[in-house]
Design a protein around this nucleic acid. Structure first.
Lengths: 380, 380
DNA sequence: CTGTTAGCGCCTTCAA
DNA sequence: TTGAAGGCGCTAACAG
C-alpha cells in the first residue's frame, strides 16, 4: 500500500510541500511545476491520505447526518438533499465532502453516541433530522452537547426539529475559544458557535388538516398519534386540538377519547391504532394519522372492518411522501418540503448560505386534498 | 479545542500509551489503572482524535456505501440494513464504525469519484449497491479499481449487482502486498483481496412474474423497462423474455414492440411508458414494470386512460417495497429480501461472516400475488 | 503490567 | 515560487 506525498515529490523532482500545495490548490505554484506534479500523481495513482491530512490540518471533510431511520423515505429524502449539497451545484468540480449517515432509531442514547463518534472524526458539520425526544434530561444534555460542539467549530444544523431552547449561549465563557467568533461575526449571525435550525410547521399543518375535515362537516375526528415524547408528535397533536377548539369542538375529555397514543411512525401502529379507535368510538367519521405511513395502516384496518374510505370514514396523513398520491385511495395530507429543507440544511451546514436572522428558518407546508377525505355520510 | 491523550495521561498519572491501551481495550491493563484513566477521560471529556488514530493505526472505522439514490426506499432499506450491522447485535457495546453514504445517481464517473474519496479516507470496507452500469469501458475500469482496493485490504462487497466478471484476480502480482493474504487465507476464501457479492436473482424473479401472467391467460404482455445499460434492467427483461419463450410466446419482433425502453426507475417513466405502450399496442392486457415505483406510474396512466386495473389491464411491479401492498390496487410483485441482503453484505464487509464459497451469495425472491393482476377480460 | 521511543503522512510556518 | 523542518495526536513495538 501507500504511495505517499514524498513519493510523488521525488518523482516530480520537487519537495513534498510543493506537492501538498498543488493538491490543495490554495497556494500559488508555477504552472510548469504544477503540471509535473500532476503527472506524477497520475502515474503513481496517488491518493491522499485523508486521516493524515485531517490530522495535520485539524479538519476533515466529513459531514454527519443523524436520522431516525434511513429506510424511511421521510429521512431518505432529507438525507439525500443534504448530500446533494456536498457536491456543489450541478456536477461542478469533484465533490470532496462525504456524508456520514447515522441511524439513531429515535433513541436518545444513540443520538449522543453518534455525536461522539462524529466528534471523534472531527466532522466539519452535523445535521440532526427529525423530531427531538422530549425527555427533559436528554433535552438539556443534548443542548449542552450541541452548543459545545458548535462553539468548537463544528457547524450544527437541526432540520425538522424545533430550535434548541434556553439561552442562546450556555457554554461556559472561559473555557471556549472566544477568539473563534468575533463581534462582527455575531452581529451578522455568521458566528460559528450557533446552532442553526430549519423547522417544519407541524402545528400549522395539523391545524390546516383538521380545519379541512371540520369544513367538510366532520364532528367526530379521531387522531392516531405518533411516538410519545416526540416534539413532532406533540406539535401535530397541538395543531389538531387548536383547530378543534377554534371551531368550538369537543371538550378535552371527548378529544382525549378520540386520540390513540403512542405507536411508532409505521404502518402497524396505524393499523392497531385505527382498530382501537373504532372500538372506543364507533361514531368516528374521520381519522387523522401521525403521518402518511401510519395513515396507510389506518386505511388497511378500516378496509378490514368493512368501512370504505372516504365514504364511511375519511383518512388523512402527514408529510406527503411520494407514495401517498398513489395509495388506495390517494391520500389527503400535508406536504412538507422535505427536499428543500434538507438542501437548505446542507447549505447551512456547509456555510454556503448565510444563516438566517435568529438562526431559525421555518419552511412552509401545503394542504394536499385528495381522495381519502370527503364529507361524512348523511347519517353521521 | 483539544484535550489530548497526553492530557488524560497526565491527569491519571500514567503514560499516554497506557491511556491508549485502556481506550482501545485490546491489551491488558490493571484494573486500578484503568479506573483512574477512565475517570480522567470522563473529567476531561476527552474524545479520541479519529484522524490521528487512523493515521497511526493505518485503519479507520469508516465503511462506505454507494447507492444510486438514498431517497429511494430500495436503497434506503439496503443502506439501513448494512448500517444496522455496524452496531453489533442488539445494542451491544457502543458502535464504533460509521457509514458513509454516497449517492452516485447511477453515474459511472461519480461511482469512481466516490471510490477515490473513500479510498482517501482509508475506508475499512465499501459496499456497492444496485445494478451496475454495463458500459464495457466503465465495467473494466471499475473492476480493476475494486480489485486493487480489495487487494490492498479494503473489503469490497457488491450488493444487488452481479459478481465482477473476468479472472478472479487481475491485479498485477508484483506490486501488491502478497503478504497480506496467506495460502491458508485463500484456501478458506477468507482472503482479503477478493470482491464479495450478494446477488439478486432478477432473471428468476421476472421469469416467475411473467409466468404468473401467462398462467392467468395473458398473451399480450407489455414491458416497461428500466434505464438502459443497467444489469438489473437487462436481467429482468431477459427473465421476462425467457418465460415468454418457454410458453411458446410471441416472436422477437412482437416482443420488442411490446417493450418500452429506457426510463429511469421512477414514477414518471412508468406513466410515460404506459402511454407509449398502449399507443403502440392497444391490445395489451398486462404490463410488467421495471419496478414497483414504475408500476405506480403505469397504474396512474392506465387510470387516466379510463382503463381499470386489473379488470382491463393487469399490472405488476418488482422489489415489493413497503408501499406496494398499500397501493391502489395492491401490487402484484416480486419480493426481494432487501433487508436481509443488506445485512448480509454488512456482515461480509465487517468480516463478521465468513465469505461464501466462490465469493457469491444469491438471495431468493418471492412472488407476491396481490390485487393488481387478474385474468384478461373474456374478449381479450 | 507499564513507560519509552519512533514514526504514521501531511500541513504550515519560516527561510531562501 | 519553492524547500526545510517541526509537529498534529495516536499507536505499536520494544524494553523494563
Amino acid at each position: 500500500m501507500a504511495v505517499t506525498l514524498a513519493d510523488v515529490a521525488a518523482r516530480a523532482g520537487v519537495s513534498s510541500a510543493t506537492v501538498s500545495r498543488v493538491l490543495s490548490g490554495n497556494y500559488p505554484v508555477a504552472d510548469a511545476t504544477r503540471n509535473r506534479v500532476l503527472r506524477a500523481v497520475d502515474e503513481l495513482e496517488y491518493v491522499v491520505n485523508g486521516p493524515a491530512s485531517a490530522l495535520a490540518a485539524a479538519s476533515s471533510d466529513l459531514l454527519g447526518i443523524l436520522v431516525n431511520d434511513i429506510a424511511d423515505p421521510f429521512f431518505g429524502i432529507i438525507a439525500g438533499a443534504v448530500q446533494g449539497e456536498l457536491e456543489g451545484p450541478q456536477g461542478g468540480p469533484v465533490p470532496r465532502k462525504l456524508a456520514v449517515v447515522c441511524n439513531t432509531g429515535g433513541s436518545p442514547e444513540r443520538e449522543l453516541t453518534y455525536l461522539t463518534l462524529l466528534q471523534r472524526q472531527r466532522a466539519a458539520a452535523i445535521v440532526l433530522t427529525g423530531g427531538a425526544v422530549e425527555d427533559p434530561e436528554h433535552r438539556s444534555a443534548l443542548a449542552t452537547r450541541l452548543r459545545r460542539l458548535a462553539a468548537s467549530g463544528t457547524r450544527i444544523v437541526l432540520c425538522g426539529r424545533p430550535p434548541l431552547e434556553g439561552p442562546e449561549q450556555r457554554a461556559e465563557p472561559g473555557a471556549l475559544p472566544r477568539s473563534a467568533h468575533t463581534a462582527a461575526d455575531r452581529a451578522q449571525g455568521t458566528a460559528s458557535g450557533t446552532v442553526l435550525t430549519v423547522a417544519f410547521d407541524n402545528r400549522g399543518g395539523a391545524y390546516a388538516l383538521t380545519s379541512h375535515l371540520l369544513t367538510l362537516g366532520h364532528r367526530h375526528i379521531g387522531y392516531v398519534a405518533g411516538p410519545a415524547e416526540r416534539t413532532t408528535t406533540r406539535h401535530r397533536l397541538e395543531g389538531h386540538r387548536a383547530a378543534l377548539a377554534a371551531h368550538g369542538g369537543p371538550d378535552t375529555r371527548q378529544a382525549e377519547r378520540l386520540t390513540v397514543h403512542g405507536g411508532d411512525y409505521d404502518r402497524s401502529s396505524g393499523y392497531e391504532g385505527a382498530r382501537e379507535l373504532l372500538r372506543r368510538a364507533p361514531e368516528t367519521t374521520a381519522v387523522l394519522a401521525a403521518n402518511d405511513t401510519v395513515a396507510l395502516g389506518v386505511c388497511a384496518a378500516l378496509r378490514e372492518l368493512g368501512l370504505r374510505v372516504p365514504q364511511d370514514v375519511s383518512v388523512a396523513g402527514f408529510d406527503d411522501l411520494p407514495f401517498s398520491a398513489d395509495a388506495s385511495p390517494a391520500l389527503t395530507t400535508v406536504r412538507l418540503p422535505l427536499h428543500e429543507a434538507g438542501a437548505h440544511a446542507g447549505q447551512l451546514a456547509l456555510g454556503t448560505l448565510p444563516p438566517p436572522p435568529g438562526g431559525v428558518t421555518t419552511v412552509g407546508h401545503e394542504l394536499m386534498v385528495r381522495a381519502s377525505t370527503a364529507p361524512p355520510r348523511a347519517g353521521g
